[in-house]
Write a protein that binds this DNA or RNA. Structure first.
Length: 647
RNA sequence: GCGCCUGUAGCUCAGGGGAUAGAGCAACGGACUUCUAAUCCGUUGGCCGUAGGUUCGAUUCCUACCAGGCGCGCCA
């Protein structure tokens, strides 16, 4: 092992060595995945352990303990870096004890040297990673379901960046759909005037609901929807202008809402521009040339252009597995437009938007937008990997999208199309009740419904939690000015909301509950922030920002307390967490880790004095605290959670 | 009907072939002259949906069933 080795790869070293030894001694070839190495449940068993000997017992025709002993002896003889000794316990576990002086010393040095780069990897090979998220219909205020989308998408974008991808965040705006049309119906035909007394997106929230209720009793009004849609598609008329103006105003509201949570974008893509650029027409021509689609002369899809999906196992059970792209009346389906858009993202459409700068965002970065009056640019799309963040109800359509690409001959692009599907946010009985929804004993969760105006608005939630956190700050820091209190309160509120939105497994519905979402204690964002603030405090009091912490104290590492070792072991996991979070598309893996890292530090904080320790010990512990602060800072950054120096 | 997902403590959730199944909340009892108590320590609380199977070993994998959610348009 002549290459540079890192402490966070220690478990990998053991695995590799075991693989080699097992092959040599028993002539059994195991994959690395078959050699489980993990932290044992009890520190008495050492720092790392593996049950692999028990797996081998049958094939090697020896007792597990015997095999374990033989492997442990062999490992001992190899002198792996970072390991002190190997032992065996009863059923057949091999346990490893770390050489903490070297292990911790190298880790702390690495963290100090790598700083905010610590934990990053180069898996992405600088490939272009396009992620589309948020995508809210521009016709009403954002609600907490949209928040889940944006927070998950933003975290994935951050994970992709840490994983060495060139990341482009897109926000697609469907400004030509029925949602916008409904609001336009209200504004134009109902003569509803916006008087500026409330926020425009809140006004539209109510108007959208009103229009949908009136549709039920007034078929003539409902017919206006189709009329409006038609006029929008035609363009260059009063209605189309009104639709665009309305959409833009709502998009601005959405951008403001998301900016409050530090969610930003690289480019906006407007459906109206997709239409004007003739993306679909162009895609259709390409598909026809390529022969990927067929015109049906008979059958249920008679007169339509379809993509044949029936021979794919995913669709073989469906009554009508083929997907219509062009209807018999000559218009394109939603899926067709989606395919064209996806082709654009990959740069295989042969067409591109024109672009201009939309605005400068709160993070100082420019936001671009597709724009018919803009300039030609080569910066956008042209992806190697495309991730679409859309809730799980879109799974079928996302499958159709991917497999259609495959069928059209874009096999690599199909492979690199990832649907990040997540379950929706619903309301608890209490939350539903608070919003005035009629509740019954028969159910305990209530779906949000834009058309009915049922939902918790994102900004309402934020306002409420900021009020609460600011109150708490005021209690703790009466010396601060009101502005400072609000600023800190806002940071904590952002931490609480973002953590709440991504901490759950994406397969499960979040049953939104105010009490839980507003909680600032226990397994919450503020807990992470508090651990960071506590570490900052120690360093500030030690004057560590000005003096250089010396590594001389590392001799003291041989007498590390358990709490210190636990903290070291937690920090060492971080690079693997980033890798796994991205690979498994699992932001919640990062929140889980962040929480356990914070817990380790809290435990250290309570048990191990830093400032009052002897000089050598103090120096070592300050280094440890500084390392923790760095790692926690990095984790918080991935999660998009502000890291306050004090709380 | 077909397909996907979920079922773990009173509640909200982690874990995902391996040692005694973990957290938070709630309840109860402790710890602030101490590096900030948005914290920590302790107690109570589990047929890991049910039944089979695979395995040295299953809460984890497979099958069936039960319960719940979602999806399967020439809608967007």
């Amino acid at each position: 092992m002549t290459e540079k080795t890192y402490p966070w790869e220690a478990d990998l070293h053991v695995k590799n060595e075991l693989q080699l030894l097992i092959s040599e001694i028993y002539q059994i070839d195991l994959s690395l995945d078959e050699i489980a190495v993990s932290s044992p449940p009890n520190p008495e068993f050492g720092d790392l352990s593996t049950p692999v000997a028990m797996k081998l017992a049958k094939a090697a025709r020896k007792s597990p303990v015997e095999i374990a002993q033989q492997l442990a002896d062999s490992l001992q003889a190899v002198h792996l870096p970072y390991f002190e000794s190997f032992s065996v316990t009863k059923p057949g576990y091999i346990n490893a004890k770390m050489d903490y002086k070297r292990f911790a010393g190298d880790l702390l040095t690495s963290i100090r040297n790598m700083g905010d780069q610590f934990g990053n990897n180069a898996d992405g090979e600088k490939k272009k990673f396009v992620i589309e998220h948020t995508n809210i219909n521009p016709n009403k205020a954002a609600h907490i379901g949209h928040l889940r989308n944006s927070c998950l998408g933003d975290t994935m974008a951050r994970l992709a960046e840490k994983s060495g991808f060139d990341v482009e965040v897109q926000n697609y705006i469907d400004d030509t759909g029925t949602a916008v049309a409904d609001v336009v119906v209200g504004l134009h035909y109902l003569g509803e005037k916006y008087d500026g007394k409330q926020r425009f997106d809140y006004f539209c929230w109510d108007l959208y609901t009103k229009v949908n209720i009136l549709y039920q009793e007034d078929p003539e009004l409902e017919a206006k929807q189709a009329e409006v849609l038609h006029l929008i598609e035609e363009g260059n008329n009063e209605i189309a202008h009104l639709a665009k103006e309305t959409s833009k105003k709502i998009v601005d509201c959405h951008l403001n809402t998301m900016a409050r949570l530090d969610v930003f974008y690289k480019v906006l893509t407007w459906e109206s521009d997709i239409m004007k650029m003739g993306f679909w027409k162009h895609a259709f021509a390409r598909m026809k040339d390529q022969g990927g689609i067929v015109y049906e002369e008979s059958g249920p899809n008679k007169g339509c252009w379809v993509v044949k999906l029936g021979d794919l196992p995913e669709f073989s059970n469906l009554e009508n597995p083929d997907k219509i792209l062009l209807r018999s009346n000559g218009t394109a389906t939603y899926t067709a437009k989606d395919i064209a858009n996806q082709m654009w993202k990959f740069g295989i459409l042969g067409r591109d938007f024109l672009y201009s700068i939309y605005c400068t965002q709160k993070n100082g970065k420019e936001l671009w937008t597709s724009d018919m009056d803009g300039a030609k640019m080569d910066d956008f799309g042209r992806a190697d990997v495309v991730m679409n963040v859309i809730d799980i109800r879109q799974k079928y359509l996302q499958d159709v999208l991917r497999l259609s690409l495959f069928k059209l001959g874009f096999e690599d692009e199909a492979d690199n199309s990832i649907h990040f599907g997540y379950e929706v946010v619903a309301l608890s009985t209490e939350a539903a009740q608070e919003l005035g929804v009629e509740v019954s004993d028969e159910r305990d969760i209530y779906a949000m419904a834009g058309r009915k105006g049922i939902g918790v608005k994102a900004d309402d939630l934020l306002d409420r939690i900021i009020e609460k956190t600011t109150e708490e700050v005021a209690k703790r820091h009466p010396e601060m000015s009101a502005e400072e209190q609000t600023a800190l309160g806002t940071k904590i509120a952002v931490g609480a909301v973002r953590y709440y939105m991504i901490r759950y497994n994406t397969n499960s519905v979040i049953v939104f509950d105010f009490q839980e979402a507003l909680s600032l204690q226990g397994n919450t964002g503020p807990y992470l922030q508090y651990s960071y603030a506590r570490a900052s405090n120690i360093l500030r009091k030690a004057g560590a920002d000005n003096i250089e912490i010396k590594m001389d104290g590392l001799d003291a590492l041989s007498t590390m307390a358990d709490a210190e070792k636990e903290l070291i072991k937690k920090m060492v996991e971080y690079p693997g967490v980033i890798r796994r979070g991205f690979r498994d598309v699992a932001p919640s893996a990062v929140t889980d880790y962040a929480y356990s890292l914070a817990t380790s530090f809290m435990s250290f904080y309570e048990k191990v004095p830093v400032l009052s320790a002897d000089d050598d010990m103090k120096s070592m512990r300050l280094e440890l605290v500084a390392a923790f602060k760095m790692v926690m800072g990095n984790v918080l950054h991935v999660l998009g959670i502000p890291a306050p120096e004090r709380m």
